[in-house]
């Protein structure tokens, strides 16, 4: 029975940790993308300053 408990907890534990890490990675990236896009938005309009 020890092996059974160990098997369930280790296997499901790995899957759970992986799932949580996926969630964190996604959230961090979403924040980074949002930050980059927010920082970019006000810069784009003055387009004519390109050297022509």
């Amino acid at each position: 029975m020890n092996y059974v408990v160990a098997g369930y907890s280790i296997t499901l534990g790995i899957l759970f940790v992986y799932a949580v890490s996926l969630g964190f990675r996604r959230r961090r990236l979403a924040r980074a993308v949002a930050a980059v896009e927010a920082a970019r938005a006000p810069v784009t309009p003055p387009d004519p300053r390109s050297p022509q």
Partner: peptide
Amino acid sequence: AWMLVVRYRIGLLEDRLGAEELDR
């Protein structure tokens, strides 16, 4: 299926971040 969708979103966001940073 849940992990696949989340991992797919991660790939998408990574590509988008890469493109954004290049643009910037």
